[in-house]
Every structure is written in C-alpha cells, then in structure tokens.
C-alpha cells in the first residue's frame, strides 16, 4: 500500500521545526510501523537526503525507547501497543499519517522525533527506590507479601518509562509515571518505610522538572501502552495525604 506521511523535522533543540511530507510506497501490511519508517529512510539515504531520526531499541514493546505521536495519539491507534509493536495492517492504502514527537516542556526535542526524557530519570533519582544496600538483607521469604499486594505492585511496576502519559496529557504532567513508581513501592512492606518521604520528594521533583499538574483528564491511561491505570494516581494522592497527616502528627509530639 501507499501512504502519505507528515513527519516532524527539527534539526536541533533550538531550531524551528516543521512537518515535512513524504510518500511511503509499497508498504507491506506485515511491516511494523518502524519498519515502514526504515523503508522510507532507506529511500531517503539513497536519494542523498537526511533520514528521519527516531528513537527505538528493543522493538518488542518493553524498553520504552520508541516515542512517536501518530495521528494525534501517542504510540498510535492500537490500544496498549507501543509504536514498535504497531503494525501497518492498522492502516489503509492511501492513508495520511501524522508523525510527531512527544511534546512537553520537560521533553525538549533533540532532533526530529527524538526527545530528551532524562527528566523522568531525575524523578526516579529523587526517591523512586528502596534505599537498600547491596548485601546484608534478610532471606527473601522472611517478609511475606499478600498475593493481591504483590500483584498490584507488579501492575504498577510494568511502566516502561516511555513518557506517553506526558505526551498525551493536556497539562504535560508526569503524574501517571510518578504514581506508578510510588504505588509499586508503597504496596510492598519493604517500601512503606520510606513511603511518606518518597511521595513528597518525587512529586516535588516532578514539578521542578517543569511537568504540569494532574487535573484528572485520564488521557494518560488511555495512551499508556502498558495499561497503567489512573487508580495509581488516586493511590499517590492517598499516600500524600497520609504523609501530611503523619507529618503533622510528628510535629505535635
């Protein structure tokens, strides 16, 4: 099939970008979306033009590197699917496809469809872990964890850190990302010791990075390729309230 692509081209962070039109010819429905772009790029290289730069790595939907807004939806039209797992059979011959980078102040464009997502790393660095040393830990079965809690922790921990939630959010908020990590750790007894501190410093770090605030649009959940749910944001909110109560309790002692 033949397609018309409108792809965001931008030379560098401070350059102006624009949508450039490309024709993608003889595309097989068996191709993945990125393989379609590979084909287009091969053609561009042979025509002595600059290929489209885009992030990708594992191409099996787990590393979280790929990041494209396709026809107005982060990761494209198929639910719970990353760009790399999206296949061309989801499109029709003659379709026009708009391909844009994640857009948010906290994710400056590096080139074309590549953005800088290190802000997400810095949110984790603020406190998205359990402060345990290597070695000197108890036996793995010394602390029992109910299956339900372990399952919920796992649900939250499936986040691949791709940033689609930020790209989809009308406010450019990273609340779903932050909430997923807060929930994952707060569901486990090992993580509860630092829970109050963690929720405060992680949300503070999120603000400092220039992400917006959550106003419960739930676009993030709809765009998330891993099905991370906004209930985790409610959980983060609960953790925050708990932290405030605990804090004022401490002050009264």
């Amino acid at each position: 099939m033949d397609l018309i692509l409108f792809v965001w081209r931008q030379k560098g962070p401070d350059e102006k970008g624009l949508l450039e039109q490309f024709a993608a010819k003889d595309i097989s429905p068996e191709m993945s979306f990125l393989e379609m772009l590979d084909t287009v790029n091969e053609g561009l290289i042979k025509a002595a033009k600059e290929p489209i730069a885009f992030d990708h790595d594992c191409r099996e939907g787990i590393c979280g590197m790929c990041s494209q807004v396709i026809n107005g939806v982060p990761h494209g039209p198929q639910e719970k699917t990353t760009v790399c797992q999206l296949h061309m059979r989801n499109f029709k011959d003659g379709d026009s496809i708009y391909i844009e980078p994640w857009r948010a102040r906290a994710f400056p464009v590096i080139k074309d469809l590549i953005v800088d997502r290190s802000a997400l790393d810095r949110i984790i660095q603020a406190g998205g872990y359990i402060s345990v040393h290597t070695g000197g830990v108890p036996d793995a079965n010394a602390v029992l964890i109910s299956k339900d809690n372990a399952d919920t922790a796992m649900d939250a921990s499936e986040c691949i850190g791709c940033g689609a939630c930020v790209a989809a959010c009308p406010n450019g908020s990273a609340m779903l990302f932050t909430a997923a990590k807060v929930t994952h750790l707060a569901m486990l007894p090992q993580g509860q010791i630092e829970a109050a501190r963690r929720v405060c410093i992680m949300t503070e770090a999120m603000m400092k990075e220039g992400f917006g605030n959550c106003s419960n649009h739930y676009e993030c959940q709809a765009a998330c390729p891993k099905g991370i749910r906004v209930q985790f944001i409610a959980k983060l909110n609960r953790e925050f309230i708990k932290a405030q109560i605990k804090d004022s309790g401490k002050r009264n002692q």
Binding site: Y129, I130, V137, A140, S146, M154, L188
Partner: peptide, 14 residues
C-alpha cells in the same frame, strides 16, 4: 533473590 526482594522486585507469590 534476597537482594532483589529487598529492593522491591515484585516476584510472583502464592
């Protein structure tokens, strides 16, 4: 396994 559990890796449980 001990180390990973302490870090909060959500291994499957019964």
């Amino acid at each position: 396994i001990d180390q990973c559990v302490a870090q909060g890796v959500p291994f499957a449980r019964d």
